[in-house]
Design a protein around this nucleic acid. Structure first.
Length: 896
RNA sequence: AGGCGCGUAGCUCAGUGGUAGAGCACUACCUUGACACGGUAGGGGUCUGGGGUUCAAAUCCCCACGCGCCUACCA
């Protein structure tokens, strides 16, 4: 047998995924159990323009762990993949491409442009789907969806029409966030607020028929051309007499009133606010309240309109600002200019400063939808957020303050709004052109040119991907989905909207749980971003350390932000190598043996202690991992598995088994031991599989005796793969606390001997003699039964066990739990002074613990108020420590 | 401006009422027939600071300091 000493992840990563996919292991149909409960996850669809980053890798790892785990538990598992058409991003991407050819999208026209986008998608879109295969993601590619697919587009139209018919979608003329660069409206959630250091200009407006002025403060002087009032607080004594007066708006021939409104804060600026209803959201509101005219002075390209006057028409908004200041200065109408820090709204995509504009758009009313979600949370406590704090509150608070959603976009790439205009100006909303014609009669119909916000189709994702509005079998089986794994930044954009739409259209929440992951930061604690260029490419990490090691690292991240730490991946790479070599050992000693789970069950009482122990540890590990995953405690699960495999299985079980496994003589006993070792290993690989799919499959396939019989009953006709074996149960019946306790005594004994050897500088090759004294009969028999293994692991030539400790004076000594004592005769080697110090240190530790225990037990209030079992546990602990302590004192005394 | 989170060993992080944990780094020894991506033993923390609740606080409450995030219509 020729097995390399070092694990090469690439080799394993090359073959298995293709086989899993081809054999249909990812599709729920592989499950033959008609009664199997369903488990489903709809992937947060990555943008078609995107490529894999750490955030994806993190979420995908967690989803894949859950999917593989549930599949191994026999559940009918569907993890559905797909992509989002990402309206603005994709349109920008293709527009940039065209620009290189010297073209604009208008040169092509809408139809050709959209064709071009589809072509781009076919050629370069969806990088991420290839990269997900590398991750090992067990998604069902046969059900892959794209938000612009015909069936999903039909779902979008259906949803739109139903919402419209229910009065939840309307068309209106309102002030909106406009991106002058992308030439589209944006919803409030797509606006980026950035702090900005700018200036606050104090402008003086003359009062008509008076020599007085009213001074207003503004950060955007250019909007003054659209002012239709100046507002003051009704309680502001400074301006009481001015309310109702008229001002002469400089640079124009307009006269505007001074109005009173409680919105105005007296403390800020001068207490007088210029009101530009057409170009500021707050002024717009006030304009509506006071019936003010809306004068549009800035157009959709952020240039001044003719309404701004001949001097300004056509000027860019910033140029206009300069010119306004110039003119005000000339007229001596500037009181002062001060530095001022405020926040500015930018386009999330292109970072252009947005322009609030009045525009006709489609809106979705959110009050009723919001109430559906809030009621569901109040009544059912769903969805359940992990972690519940703070996300449940973040989610409900946001819903409570929700405003209407601007759902139209002036783009070409996306779902065109299913509404048609008649020459008479009527609007007909329908699923298809034909339906619109039926509704409108025999008139010319023009479809509304706008498309829907990308997030509109995303909101339908959990059910549109399963065939809605048709009542498909998939929808029946897999909706609602089980859990949503996502990053916190789309709780509003996406999570809440899915809940509302799911409840609205299916009457059921889209998912039961929402697991919110933390963020992976760079090593300086900064967010990874393209613009900063500080991102770590998951594919490079895969290449360097292997996919499995990367997955373990990611699974350990959990819900708090964590700095990227390559050392962590390296240590999991080492862990993968450890698994490789442990298996290598088992295989090198597998002659005549084979995997047989039967060797780990049934009547175990006749087995050697270490066998009973590892079987118990195995089940406890399975139990703990299951409990951890039930609460999405990935970190906990990884830690449990890591220590079980490395500490329990490798450091102790393999070492304790070596004598039996490697004995020269072939024997039935040797074969059974080898088979049992292989069987424990096989179970351990199963436990690890959801986290480390590649190495576990690679090694599992090499174990002698693996075949279809090891698969979970639900998959019994499938070809042999670790993917479809049963996940170890972790049955309480197979957890043997006594074996664990006894083994711990043996482990402690061996560790103490090693400690003595190390402290006494005994050469590793040198054999020592062990003398053990234990008054307790059970302890003696435990040590006796394991004496050969104790000798082997402690490198002892001889082990003697008696009720009384009788040992030469020149011995190093130790006191163990349960009253047992240990002596290692070291004639000629022992330095009595050093030994005294060593024991003294030991005694000191015990004494200080005993001290604090005594103090606690002497406190009557503790005895009175603490739970009885707590008090009892402390008493026992003190008793044990006292015994060991007095034994140690005696030992020290004997040393002279 | 409000809201929230975080601050634990040199580093990256677990732990959320009952004797402080892991990995890496560090020290010593070891080419022991699975593995030096390894083995054995070991050192290292007044759990940011201060107050409070409790028999008992890293853990719950309050205050302060530091870091970060989110929400918001102060021109």
């Amino acid at each position: 047998m020729d097995i390399p000493k070092t694990y090469d992840p690439k080799q394993a990563e090359e073959h298995h995924y293709a086989r899993w996919e081809k054999q249909g292991f990812f599709a729920p149909e592989v499950n033959q159990d008609q009664d199997a409960p369903a488990f489903s996850i709809a992937i947060p669809p990555p943008n078609v323009t995107g490529s894999l980053h750490m955030g994806h890798a993190l979420q995908h790892t967690m989803m894949d762990v859950l999917a593989r785990y549930k599949r191994m538990c026999g559940q009918r598992t569907l993890w559905l993949p797909g992509m989002d058409h990402a309206g603005i991003s994709t349109q920008l991407m293709v527009t940039r491409e065209l620009k290189k050819e010297g073209l604009t999208r208008h040169d092509l026209g809408r139809e050709k442009f959209v064709e071009r986008v589809w072509k781009w998608k076919a050629e370069s879109g969806g990088q991420i789907t290839k990269q997900m295969r590398r991750e090992g993601a067990s998604v069902d590619w046969s059900r892959e969806k794209f938000t612009m697919d015909e069936d999903l587009s039909r779902a979008v139209r259906e949803a739109f029409v139903r919402l419209y018919d229910d009065g939840l979608i309307y068309r209106g003329n309102r002030i909106v966030n406009w991106c002058p660069n992308d030439q589209t409206v944006l919803s409030d959630l797509e606006v980026l607020k950035e702090p900005q250091v700018g200036k606050l200009y104090y402008l003086k407006y003359p009062v008509k028929h008076s020599d007085r002025f009213v001074t207003v403060a503004t950060t955007r002087p250019e909007t003054m051309l659209g002012d239709t009032a100046v507002a003051v607080n009704p309680l502001d004594e400074r301006y009481l007499d001015l309310v109702g007066e008229t001002l002469l708006l400089p640079l124009t021939d307009r006269e505007i009133p001074v109005i009173a409104d409680e919105y105005v804060e007296q403390e800020f600026g001068t207490g007088a606010v210029k009101i530009t209803p057409a170009h500021d959201p707050n002024d717009y509101e006030m304009g509506v309240r006071h019936n003010l005219a809306q004068i549009v002075v800035i157009d959709q390209y952020a240039k001044m309109t003719p309404e701004a006057g001949a001097d300004f028409a056509g000027l860019d908004r910033y140029k206009a600002r300069e010119k306004i200041i110039e003119k005000f200065t000339e007229l001596d109408l500037i009181e002062k200019v001060v530095d001022y820090e405020f926040s500015i709204s930018k386009c999330e995509r292109c970072k252009t400063v947005l322009e609030p504009l009045i525009s006709t758009q489609w809106f979705c009313r959110m009050d009723q939808l919001r109430d559906l979600a809030l009621e569901h949370m109040a009544r059912e406590e769903k969805p359940r957020f992990f972690p519940e704090v703070p996300y449940r509150k973040v989610y409900t608070d946001w819903l409570e303050n929700l405003r209407d959603w601007t759902i139209s976009r002036q783009l070409w790439w996306g779902h065109q709004i299913p509404a048609w205009h008649t020459p008479a100006g009527d609007v007909v909303v329908a699923r298809t052109h034909e339906e619109a014609r039926l509704k409108a009669g025999d008139v010319e119909l023009t479809q509304d040119p706008d498309v829907l916000d990308t997030w509109f189709s995303s909101a339908l994702w959990p059910f549109s991907t399963l065939g809605w509005p048709e009542k498909t079998a998939d929808l029946e089986t897999f909706y609602p989905t089980s859990v949503l794994v996502t990053a916190r930044d789309i709780i509003f954009l996406w999570v809440s909207r899915m809940v509302m739409m799911g409840l609205k259209f299916e009457g059921k929440r889209p998912f039961a749980d929402v697991f919110v992951t933390g963020t992976i930061l760079d090593k300086h604690g900064q967010r990874m971003s393209k613009t900063k260029g500080n991102g770590v490419d998951p594919l490079e990490v895969f290449d360097k350390f292997g996919v499995d090691a990367t997955r373990l690292t990611l699974a350990s991240v959990g819900t708090t932000d964590t700095r990227w730490n390559e050392k962590q991946v390296e240590s999991y790479r080492n862990f993968a190598n450890k698994i490789w070599n442990a298996t290598r050992f088992c295989l090198l000693n597998s002659d005549g043996a084979k995997v047989d789970p039967g060797l780990l069950a049934g009547d175990l009482q006749s087995l050697p202690l270490h066998d009973r122990w590892i079987i118990s540890r195995l089940h406890k590990t399975a139990r703990d991992v299951r409990a951890a995953l039930a609460e999405y405690q990935f970190h906990e699960a990884v830690q449990t598995l890591y220590h079980f495999f490395w500490d329990d299985f490798c450091d102790w079980y393999i070492e304790l088994s070596k004598a039996a496994i490697t004995s020269e003589e072939a024997s039935a006993e040797r074969t059974t031991s080898r088979s049992r070792l292989l069987s424990v290993l096989e179970q351990a690989l199963r436990l690890l599989h959801p986290f480390m799919p590649y190495i576990t499959e690679e090694l599992w396939q090499q174990l002698p005796g693996v075949n279809g019989e090891l698969l979970h009953p639900a998959y019994k006709t499938a070809p042999a793969t670790i993917m479809l074996t049963g996940y170890p149960e972790g049955l309480t019946d197979l957890i043997d606390e006594q074996a664990e306790e006894e083994m711990q005594m043996v482990i402690d004994l061996i560790s103490r001997v090693r400690n003595i050897r190390s402290e006494m500088n005994i050469k590793p090759g040198e054999r020592v003699t062990l003398i053990i004294g234990a008054g307790d009969q059970r302890l003696r028999s435990v040590f006796s039964a394991s004496s050969e293994q104790i000798a082997r692991l402690a490198r002892a030539a001889d082990v003697s066990i008696a009720a009384e400790l009788i040992a030469p004076k020149a011995s190093a000594r130790a006191v163990l739990g349960g009253g047992a004592e240990l002596a290692v005769p070291l004639e000629g080697l022992i330095d009595f002074e050093q030994e005294r110090q060593r024991l003294g240190k030991e005694l000191g530790k015990l004494e200080s613990e005993a001290e604090s225990l005594r103090k606690q037990l002497a406190n009557p209030q503790f005895i009175e108020r603490a739970p009885v079992e707590k008090v009892e546990a402390l008493r026992q602990r003190l008793e044990d420590i006292s015994q060991r302590s007095s034994q140690l004192q005696q030992t020290l005394k004997n040393l002279g």
